[in-house]
Design a protein around this nucleic acid. Structure first.
Lengths: 232, 232
DNA sequence: GGACGGGATTAGACGCATCTAATTCATAAG
DNA sequence: CTTATGAATTAGATGCGTCTAATCCCGTCC
């Protein structure tokens, strides 16, 4: 039996692999799971013994197929729970994460299946993150870019928003920046501050927030008049 | 923060107090939580240090007011979950227990409240056990007796059925012996085997099962002619 | 190429929940 | 009153996940 703790590490490694690819550094796992580096090192040893990760000393870790499957199952639990809480228990978009984190390790296969059934096997959770299918294959990621990488003039559709910071989430919800909405990038200032136009006005977002918003570009500005180059 | 494990002990002590009153013996806790006696002893020490139980060596343990409140909260979680699973997630009566046991320690106050809300603050779970109210006062137990203590001729209403053995539960469900149904006691044989009449025939239940079914007596046989029965 | 700096690992310890084996206690039987 | 019996406790060890402090390795900078 895998402990909750091990599942948390595997999940962390998975999402880091998703965003930066393997190998995954000890320190980035440590940051994500909020443990010290030596703790992570020893857990990686345990995980490696169990065949859930491979690793080389001083390099980094990488999930095995088995470890990846476990991680994806946890992620499926997490995202199904978030969706269920939002749809059936009146949770708001920004509240679901914590509860799902607490429950994801403790639901049975039966629970997972029934929740998926009553929801109709949804494809994405309230933050826009894809919900892995029951076969636990890695969900196909459609190409998205962080909002922080966009340029002034782009019109973009919000694909997903990191679920890691409740305060940011509440703010974005309030601002009308939710998965599926279209926003126009008004300005990208020095240090990454991004200003976007939404239905009810303009919002300026610090870089840290803009990084956590992933979008698909609907429309790029035409590179035509005076402002073509490394402008502004 | 109280660990899940501590909550389990407190819950166990509470239900044992319910059925036999304090003080609660180390060995009966050990049996219920499926741990060895020394393990229970040391946990009782911990619990006593935290002010959740009082105890005297070689005597037994008793919940403090605080310990009782914790136990009742866990029980509220458990029974709300059982009810929710049965009503909203298509679980059968005999499946809910295990899932509720796994989840009861991990749901938030918010979750508890919302589940109670969508269910309309139910009074009893699918096994007939009373669901503690949000104030966490001990739920008022209406007087019931175990089916094993009934006599031939009694007509009784099933009040609640222990949720501890899935196989028994499935059998009883199939037999039509569920909370709220009325059954007639046909015979009480030596060693406690009880035969009851239900809608679809007669069922013979071993004593262990008959002990776990609590009933209210609707009608006692008049100690008079051979067949006083008020006309079946 | 040698020293430095920062991330990673090893060393060693701790707290918790658990176990088995040995001991102690309460009490029922003689 | 003494002893036997069974329950409860103490003693001592284990596994796990965690920490801090010390050491080690690798890539960079002079």
């Amino acid at each position: 039996m895998l402990s909750d703790v091990m599942e948390d590490y595997l999940k962390a490694i998975y999402v880091i692999e998703e965003e930066s690819g393997p190998p995954v550094a000890t320190s980035s796992i440590a940051e994500r799971v909020e443990k010290t580096a030596p703790t992570v090192t020893s857990m990686l040893d345990t995980l490696a013994e169990r065949g859930l990760v491979t690793r080389e000393k001083y390099e980094g870790a990488e999930l095995t197929a088995e470890g990846r499957t476990v991680a994806i199952e946890v992620l499926r639990h997490h995202r199904l729970l978030e969706t269920y809480l939002a749809e059936r228990l009146d949770y708001s978009w920004d509240e679901v994460h914590e509860e799902a984190d607490a429950l994801e390790h403790h639901i049975s296969e039966a629970f997972e299946r029934r929740v998926a059934d009553v929801l109709g096997e949804p494809a994405a959770d309230p933050h826009g993150d894809p919900i892995p299918s029951p076969d636990l294959e890695p969900p196909g990621g459609e190409a998205t870019v962080p909002l922080s990488a966009c340029e002034a003039g782009d019109r973009v559709v919000v694909a997903r928003v990191s679920d890691r910071d409740d305060a940011d989430l509440a703010y974005l919800d309030d601002a009308g920046v939710t998965p599926g909405t279209t926003v126009a990038v008004v300005d990208v200032a020095p240090f990454g501050m991004v200003t976007v136009a939404v239905d009810d006005g303009e919002q300026s977002l610090p870089e840290s927030v803009a990084e956590s918003i992933h979008v698909t570009v609907a429309d790029t500005p035409e590179p035509d008049s005076a402002e073509t180059g490394a402008g502004a």
